[in-house]
Amino acid sequence: MIDPITLIELTNLKAAGKLEELAAHPQLGMKPDWIGELAQSGNPTVRKTLAYNPALADFPTIVEKLSKDRSTIVRVYLASNPAIVTAPQAVNKLGESGPVDIRSALATNPALVNFPKIIQKLADDEHTVRFFLARNPSIANFPEIIQKLATDKARNVSEALASNPAIPTRTARI
């Protein structure tokens, strides 16, 4: 059932031209057509804000669209959004993205637990990406990745793993 108060709030934000606030609203999914409009906004700040909205979990086609956005910052925000789990092709695209910032953001995403191949790919990436992956608690169920990161040549990667609260201290200091 649609909450009329929330619907009024969303309508008021749109009418006032407060598109960034609208894009951030957690109940934006009540107006699916507006999500599509915001994804096509000429303003990258609006698209960036939408890209991190948890409501995107119900809109995998929008996630797919945003994963191809021309703005790197939009793709960075999308890569860090756990809602992308509903769009596996987008996750794969982001994992193969050119800019290291996008892959680094993806490496922090707790939804990675559902994408072991992407975790493996990120574990073989640049040291910055490996650093962020080592800090991600969702790698705890991947002993081969933990082993690889624990013995990484880049000291900051093994240190990041040692500070990961989901990894037993003994394991992280191999």
Rank of each mutant, 00 (worst) to 15 (best):
R130L: 02
F115S: 01
I174T: 10
Q27L: 10
I5L: 11
S163H: 09
D125A: 12
G95N: 10
V100N: 11
A83L: 01
L13P: 04
P88T: 12
E126A: 11
L161P: 09
M1A: 13
V113I: 15
D3Y: 07
T128P: 00
E144G: 11
E37K: 11
P110I: 03
A83D: 05
I167L: 07
V74R: 00
A123T: 11
L112P: 02
V100G: 00
T169L: 12
K93N: 15
I174Y: 13
P54N: 07
N81R: 02
E144V: 09
Y77W: 07
K153D: 12
A83S: 13
L78D: 03
I35V: 15
A15E: 15
P165G: 02
A123Q: 01
I146A: 09
L28H: 01
Q27E: 15
P165W: 12
K68G: 12
D33F: 04
V91W: 01
I62D: 03
P88F: 00
K117R: 13
F142Q: 11
A51I: 05
K14N: 09
N43Q: 13
I167D: 03
V76N: 00
P116F: 13
F115P: 01
A87Q: 01
A140G: 08
R155V: 13
A140C: 07
W34C: 07
N164K: 08
N141R: 13
A162R: 15
T6D: 08
T61Q: 14
E96K: 14
A90P: 05
I73S: 12
A83H: 08
S67K: 06
Q89G: 02
T72Q: 06
P116T: 15
P54G: 02
L50H: 07
D124C: 10
K31D: 05
Q40F: 02
L149T: 08
H25R: 12
A15G: 03
D101Y: 08
K65I: 02
S71Y: 04
L56M: 13
P110C: 04
E20R: 14
S97M: 06
A83E: 06
F132I: 01
A55L: 04
G95R: 05
R155F: 06
A140I: 12
I73M: 04
K68L: 11
V85N: 01
A57R: 10
N141S: 15
L133K: 09
R173E: 14
S41P: 06
K121N: 04
G95A: 13
L56R: 08
N164A: 07
K48D: 06
